[in-house]
Amino acid sequence: MGCASSKRSKRTPGYEEPTVLAAETPFTVSEVEALYELYKKLSNAIIADGLIHKEEFQLALFRNRNRRNLFADRIFDLFDVKRNGVIEFGEFVRSLGVFHPNAPVADKIAFAFRLYDLRQTGFIEREELKEMVLALLHESDLVLSEDVVETIVDKTFTDADTKGDGKIDTEEWKEFVSKHPSLIKNMTLPYLKDITLAFPSFVVASEVEE
């Protein structure tokens, strides 16, 4: 690795060595190196400081730096493990690791639960589910009557809240996902399997030969 990697770590706070990240995630060292090329693009798109700010995340997702989205905000907050308002390279790779096709399904189910637990109470509450449905309808320019929205939320909530205590806990969520596995389809990114093949252009700039 030599001076290039140490030069990189001086310039970019939160940078971690590919070997360390590869040891803790489903990625290989060269895949982490390839992810670093992607990370460099994203983290310098608006503010050239080597850190992904929310506007840069929005730009990458929507091609629009100002587009707000409840779910993208939640993803950003979960990626921002240190809660310092930016996504660092180590956080980026570790969080993306959950989306790897080889990542344990249990990790994907747990991540989705934290995603939907908007107020981080350790439960998914009915009001949160309704808030997310309304956010989706708004995002998709779909208009539904209040009754239909309530019916959709009620039916899903009753199905999931098997203990009937008015909130969905992690156990109930695991059970619910096992009945409806498509609910976590977003939690797997096929791109991440052999990312160096999917994006050869990334490999050109990556250092490590596997």
Partner: peptide, 26 residues
Amino acid sequence: VVPATMNAFELISTSQGLNLSSLFEK
């Protein structure tokens, strides 16, 4: 058209904000 019997989480999972594959598209 959204059927009233639809699973709310299924509906939510269609959000573009949850589709990270666009991070990887050129």
